[in-house]
């Protein structure tokens, strides 16, 4: 479930990045790399998990599924926070610079 949520987040971010590419004013590429990196790593984790227990892989317990969903959503939120920090620190639109100059 965590893998699925992250893959969907990665796909949405890639589509949003592609709409404005090659311009990347909002630093969406950072978010794409973050989610795709995590998706690839969890994909490998899922392969090993499937190899270890193929029978239970596609029939998870509902409690585990819910926990994994919460984890996936939390991971997406963490990615967004990291992206927001990168965006505000790099300030590609020069908003903070303009605000300081006004003062």
């Amino acid at each position: 479930m965590t893998l699925l949520v992250t893959v969907f987040a990665a796909i949405i971010c890639t589509v949003l990045w592609y709409k404005k590419a090659p311009q990347d004013e909002m630093k969406l590429s950072t978010l794409c790399f973050l989610y795709w990196g995590a998706s690839l790593m969890w994909f490998v984790d899922a392969i090993y998990e499937f190899a270890a227990e193929p029978a239970s892989f596609f029939t998870p317990v509902p409690a585990d599924l819910l926990n994994d969903l919460f984890l996936g959503l939390s991971v997406v939120a963490l990615g967004l926070i990291v992206w927001l920090i990168v965006l505000l620190v790099k300030d590609p639109r020069g908003v903070f610079k303009a605000m300081l100059q006004k003062k």
Binding site: T6, S29, T30, F33, L34, Y35, W36, G37, A38, S39, L40, M41, W42, V75, L78, G79, V82
Partner: peptide, 10 residues
């Protein structure tokens, strides 16, 4: 970026 992003999430 791929490696740091993935490592952070994991």
């Amino acid at each position: 970026n791929l490696l740091w992003g993935g490592s952070l999430q994991l």
